[in-house]
């Protein structure tokens, strides 16, 4: 009877610690992954008019591959759990939506269809499935990294397509996203015009997005490998000896004649 009670109690305590661990890791990933993404690709995520077909398909996925790769290192190599990338994509999406709803819409009153975030969930599922099927992080980097870049734009297209419909506004041809943009001029608007509305994007018929996605996949493949290694480094379990302990051990070693044979 006592054994049964102890077993039940052990399972209860184990579950509680597991919840602590899972929620803690989820909150840290939400906080720091979102921080990473908003500071490397944030403007493209915040605003609909920034979601162009030249820079957005490069900058957003190349930045976003970081945490999925590092988390896959932990969950796959240590626990054989094939959902590190999907977990990160979902946590990022949750963090972004919480902010867009409460901050961008409810506080500063931008319409939600102007500030909705992009999603990485479909590409993350592909990345996880690839790692699960191949069991090889190098293959996942080469194929999964490329697919990460290629899949980003098509998997987000369904959300932004209605805003790329051409309209005539005060005699000028522009997109619906542009019209909304001019209704909500922001302090970053000049940068938007300078960065996004440049080069041949508007006049170079076709090909812009495909080439951007191709380049994005190339960079994502490289960065997947880099961030997998970063995950391994941050997941290390190294302990250092404090100065006092190291000094004491050195003193004891010397007392035992550790350096008796050394020549000066």
């Amino acid at each position: 009877m006592e054994e049964i009670q102890a077993d039940a109690e052990a399972k209860r305590v184990t579950r509680r610690f597991e919840w602590f661990l899972l929620v803690t890791i989820a909150l840290v990933l939400m906080g720091t992954y979102h921080l990473h993404q908003e500071l490397f690709a944030g403007d493209w995520s915040f605003w609909l008019d920034w979601k162009d077909r030249n820079w957005w398909p490069i900058i957003a996925p190349v930045s976003a591959i970081a945490y999925p790769a590092a988390t896959q290192w932990l969950l796959w190599t240590k626990f054989r759990m094939p959902f590190g990338a999907t977990l990160c994509a979902l946590l990022l999406l949750l963090a972004e939506w919480l902010s867009r709803y409460w901050n961008f819409w409810d506080w500063t009153h931008y319409p939600l269809n102007f500030v909705f975030p992009e999603t990485f969930v479909p590409a993350a599922v592909v990345l996880d499935v690839l790692l699960m099927l191949t069991g090889n992080w190098v293959v996942t980097a080469l194929i999964g990294g490329e697919l990460w870049g290629w899949l980003f734009y098509p998997t987000n297209w369904i959300m932004i397509a209605p805003y790329h419909v051409p309209v005539e506004y005060q005699g000028a041809l522009m997109s619906v996203a542009d019209v909304i943009s001019y209704m909500y001029v922001r302090t970053s608007t000049p940068e938007y015009l300078r960065i996004v509305e440049t080069g041949t994007m508007r006049s170079f018929a076709g090909g812009v997005t495909g080439v951007a996605a191709f380049f994005s996949g190339f960079l994502a493949a490289i960065l997947y490998a880099v961030w997998w290694i970063v995950g391994a480094l941050f997941g290390g379990t190294k302990f250092f000896k404090p100065y006092a302990v190291a000094t004491e051990e050195l003193r004891k070693a010397r007392e035992k004649g550790w350096d008796a044979g050394r020549t000066v």
């Binding site: 803690t24 840290v28 939400m30 906080g31 720091t32 921080l35 902010s99 901050n103 961008f104 302090t187």
Partner: peptide, 25 residues
């Protein structure tokens, strides 16, 4: 540690983006 993680989320995610929308406005 969970308190730390929660506070990291609040500071780095929620209020940092809030700062973003403030400065754009």
């Amino acid at each position: 540690v969970l308190s730390y993680a929660f506070s990291v989320y609040v500071g780095a995610s929620f209020f940092t983006e809030q700062d973003g929308t403030w400065h754009n406005t």
